[in-house]
Write a protein that binds this DNA or RNA. Sequence first.
DNA 1: TAAATATAGTTAGTATACAAATTATATTTA
DNA 2: TAAATATAATTTGTATACTAACTATATTTA
Lengths: 157, 157
Amino acid sequence: MSMDKSIGSASVRLSKKMTRIVNLYLRSYHLTTEQWVVLRALHEIDGITQKELSHRTDKDQATLTKILDLVEKRKAVIRVANPADRRSFLIKITEQGRALVEELTPYIEEIFIRMVAGIKPEKLEAYQEVLGLLESNIEQLLEQTDLERRNKSERNI
Amino acid sequence: MSMDKSIGSASVRLSKKMTRIVNLYLRSYHLTTEQWVVLRALHEIDGITQKELSHRTDKDQATLTKILDLVEKRKAVIRVANPADRRSFLIKITEQGRALVEELTPYIEEIFIRMVAGIKPEKLEAYQEVLGLLESNIEQLLEQTDLERRNKSERNI
DNA sequence: TAAATATAGTTAGTATACAAATTATATTTA
DNA sequence: TAAATATAATTTGTATACTAACTATATTTA
């Protein structure tokens, strides 16, 4: 079997299913997986720029703007002018948002306990290790692709 | 570290990056990863209903309709009336579509060879095994959630 | 120091995933 | 056998990911 299917499609399929199941469980809280990830990040480190938040959550600026609009609307976060840079905001989690994260954290961990049921800890560790290696390799490929694109641009001048 | 982050977010992040890099490489072919998956499936087994195709590619009907619209537009597939059921089509890959898959198959495999560079085969096998176990566990959770939802519906009657 | 260049966040557009609703058609029920 | 129910594909709507363009602001360059 090709790696395209056995690694590529299998990884993407698992990711979709993880998102699907977590979204189902979060539904009654009117929260999506991606919104949760943003709130969780702010609960850990609060009052950061959207740029920083986009790095921490691996979401692009455009998508993050939309997600923040939604969680701001439900009063889980607020955007505060950044005194150090008028182009940016500091994103702060509200007490309401904090309470939500604190309520949901054990609930979501319970979901994952079910997800990994029957899988040996060493296997899970191996899984995580390969996740990291693949991610690093891809990051390098992405950088190279960036370089190639930039080189192309320079040639056009 | 919570499994939510170490398993959940890490898996989703990897999946996004895989999709991102493959999309970059496919860009010059004016093809996206998801369109590729559909064409690949049809190259393997052709002339199947959209319903069957949606199972084989793990895509919901609504999304698949859109993707088929796009690949049909570029003449990579055609929809043919299904003589056995007037509600459905048989989706057939064209010669053009077939040629594209045959051209791209080694190219994409090359991408994955780069992605797994430096990772031992046993590690990759372990990764794949855990992928499968997690997916099975989630499928079971999804079924249970379905049952719960149906039970709720019945209670409302 | 003014001009050139870069950047933070937003908007607009395309693609995809998912849910709900719809219509024509098939299947099951009574 | 007619009515009730289910189903294939499509449409509509929301959320997310990604790209490109934009505007106000910051930084660098000459």
